[in-house]
Design a protein around this nucleic acid. Structure first.
Length: 287
DNA sequence: AAGAAGCGCAACCGCCTGGGT
DNA sequence: AACCCAGGCGGTTGCGCTTCT
């Protein structure tokens, strides 16, 4: 038995907001902050419920909202994060500055979902719908296992780390949760001292934004991926000391990167070098 | 030109969560 | 521990605009 909606009070207005209402809400929040949303309408002279005011502010009036067409990079980020997080739009929105969860949700439902479906990719699982790749299913399963482990870790971490939402301003980079680091690692943006990986038991120092010649993404607690060579590395993550140890370097899997790129959206963030991926997936080069 | 169909997106609805008492 | 409440979230709706027939 749920609570009755706060808008059921007789006389409260619903539907599209007028410019006058927008102005009232904007002026009030700029002067006083939103404070209690439930109390705001009365104070601001609005015949709306608090929820409606909150939604209008978050999704439309907030000054730090970027409107208009999504960039290629934003689209890629949404697809990648959706593969990781599912329909957790607010979590996805954290990684897309100035975009609202509602906007991302709408964009997914009206654009990206259809494109993936058209490409024969299940928008829920992010796997090909046909069994054309059945021969490669073992590798796909390995990937899916890594993905699920990462997702479980994300959920676990986010419960501990996610900061409270502040809708007056976009989250600062310093306030970003560590789950973004997982994504960055996934994308191969964390660089490691690859020389130290020559020895199977050597330590990988965690060095963000170094000038190292190779990129290695930590997929989960057990595996890392060298985005250049296509190597899958079995690693041991000792989180207590913040480092990974390379335990073994299995046979090279040069076809893996391509498969991951095609089916899982694990492409590099450098869009210019991955035009073929985008062309194949979306039917145009994004320009 | 007009009606139908499709699309995009703002807004609503109802459930869930977490803090306060 | 149980309850209440505000805020947050994801799913869904409905309306206005555009494109198609």
């Amino acid at each position: 038995m749920g609570r009755s909606p706060c808008c059921e009070k007789v006389g409260l207005k619903k539907g599209p907001w007028t410019p006058e209402e927008d102005q009232k809400l904007l002026a009030y929040i700029e002067q006083h902050g939103h404070g209690s949303w439930r109390a705001l309408p009365l104070k601001a002279g609005l015949e709306r419920c608090g929820k409606s005011c909150r939604l209008r502010w978050i999704n439309y009036l907030r000054p730090d909202i970027k409107r208009g067409k999504f960039s290629l990079q934003e689209e890629q980020t949404i697809i990648q994060l959706h593969a990781l997080l599912g329909n957790r739009w607010s979590a996805i929105a954290i990684h897309l500055p100035k975009r609202t969860d509602n906007e991302i949700k709408n964009y997914w439902n009206t654009h990206l979902k259809k494109r993936l479906t058209k490409m024969g990719i299940d928008p829920v699982t992010h796997k090909p719908k046909t069994d054309a790749l059945a021969a490669n299913l073992s590798h796909m399963a390995q990937w899916e296992s890594a993905r699920l482990e990462a997702e479980a870790r994300l959920v676990r971490d986010s419960k501990l780390i996610l900061p409270p939402q502040n809708h007056l301003a976009a989250p600062s980079s310093s306030a970003r949760p560590q789950c973004l680091d997982v994504l960055k690692a996934w994308q191969g943006l964390f660089n490691f001292n690859v020389d130290s990986m020559q020895s199977p038991t050597s330590t990988l120092s965690f060095m963000e934004n170094t000038t190292s010649s190779s990129s290695v993404g930590i997929l989960n607690d057990n595996f890392a991926w060298n985005s250049e060579s296509g190597d899958i590395l079995k690693v041991d993550n000792d989180s207590s000391v913040g480092e990974w140890k390379c335990l073994e370097k299995p046979n090279q899997m040069p076809e893996l990167k391509e498969r991951l790129d095609n089916s899982m959206g694990l492409q590099e963030m450098d869009c210019s070098s991955e035009g073929a991926w985008f062309q194949e997936l979306f039917g145009y080069n994004g320009l």
